[in-house]
Design a protein around this nucleic acid. Structure first.
Lengths: 227, 227
DNA sequence: CAGGAAAAAATTTGATCATATTGTGATCCG
DNA sequence: CGGATCACAATATGATCAAATTTTTTCCTG
């Protein structure tokens, strides 16, 4: 009976020493953030235990966390699914994102060294290539990386946390919009943000960030209402 | 062996038909929100399974949710505890609260009927009595009820959700501050808010809300730095 | 011989899983 | 068309394993 002790169940991931519930959370989180899950799609516990090769308890915990994050929604009757946004939600998110992320940009401005700005510029060039290639997934990842990197210099964990939650909410819907209209129409005020960072003008950075957000979200609102 | 089938384990709560993990969540949540847990205090899974009379899984889920909410913090080595704020955190929260809650007040203004304002006024009178009596717990509950009621008229679930999270973060610390200084020194701009609501001036309501928040949070910042 | 640091044992707590129970939605028959 | 039945998914528990902390023991040094 000791011979079968060494079970090789943890099929999908084993890297690192992080507990399974954390790995499940991270996996699901990035799937949501980068739109690999379709809005409205149901998410079941058993489906995840099967596909990820872990028990129910870790899956359960990951799902609860994501519901609290806003990345998944609880549908009343024990059902969980990927959020489906309406124009009201988007309008609220525009306000929240502009309030919080403008401030993060404002605060980050003074803390960025020249080499940090260079890094952001590299990210943005890479992002332009993704747009040109029509790589929606790559665009979403790099756009997220650009903003997250910038905000990380604000040294404001609570505000960053609020911003992250909002990104989780619109991830799936953003993917749908990009998929429908292609990447060509995507706005990108990152050049303005970088220019403002170079001259160290916090207000200008905040303004450019607000415009970037507003353009992107407006596009999403338009696309979703015209379904 | 069938005789002991009827186990009466669910000792603490049975009201309603909500699942255990939801009940555990609500219980813990209000304990945090109203400062019944001391900042820094460790929260253990096993302690809760014992005290609440439920299994580990529901407790686990409730804790994960609350960590995501910001009402509990994960301390690296599998330890979970009630958050302990520093002045930086408070400064961030002042910004976030003013941004979001002022907007909630602004949006709520147009939707309040006279009788709704009357209800708020009753809440505030009740609150004054709590302050006079030095009832810290009652103050916290009614103050929260006042704001939550007001914000519920904004019809902005996402913004309300963000605001709720922030309240969870500072609940325990606020209780400590009130406990130390008594309720006498507590500011209360609710009269200004009500007056602004009566005349239907959204900007004035937003302004009064911002002042209410700022005074309260400043008091907390002072108190916490002077430990 | 006393004090203290390091090591080891014991205890506590967390993580995961397998299983039993309960509730929900769908189907089928009257 | 309405209500009983069935299949499936979610909920909850206890057992088991692993990790971390605390306590105890041991041994070295002054």
């Amino acid at each position: 009976m000791d011979l079968i002790k060494n079970k090789a169940s943890a099929s999908t991931f084993d890297k690192g020493k992080q507990p399974a519930h954390e790995q499940v959370y991270q996996t699901l989180r990035s799937q949501i953030l980068f739109g690999e899950l379709v809005p409205g799609q149901p998410v079941t516990i058993q489906g995840l235990t099967d596909s990820l090769g872990v028990g129910m308890t870790p899956v359960r915990e990951a799902i609860r966390r994501l519901i609290s994050d806003g990345g998944l929604v609880f549908q009343g009757n024990r059902r969980v699914s990927v959020p489906l946004l309406n124009s009201n939600d988007i309008e609220e998110m525009i306000f929240a994102r502009i309030s919080i992320e403008s401030e993060l940009s404002r605060r980050a401005t003074a803390n960025l060294k020249t080499q940090d700005i260079d890094q952001l510029e590299r990210l943005d060039r890479h992002l332009d290539r993704m747009i040109a290639d029509g790589d929606v997934g790559g665009y979403l990842r790099l756009n997220q990386a650009f903003h997250e990197t910038l905000y990380s210099f604000a040294n404001a964990p609570i505000l960053s946390d609020l911003a992250e939650r909002l990104w989780l909410r619109f991830g799936p819907s953003l993917r749908v919009v990009c998929g429908r209209f292609g990447t060509q129409s995507l706005p990108d005020r990152h050049k303005d943000i970088i220019a403002a960072l170079r001259v160290g003008d916090a207000e200008m950075t905040a303004k450019a960030t607000a415009q970037d957000i507003e353009q992107g979200m407006d596009l999403m609102a338009e696309a979703l209402t015209s379904v």
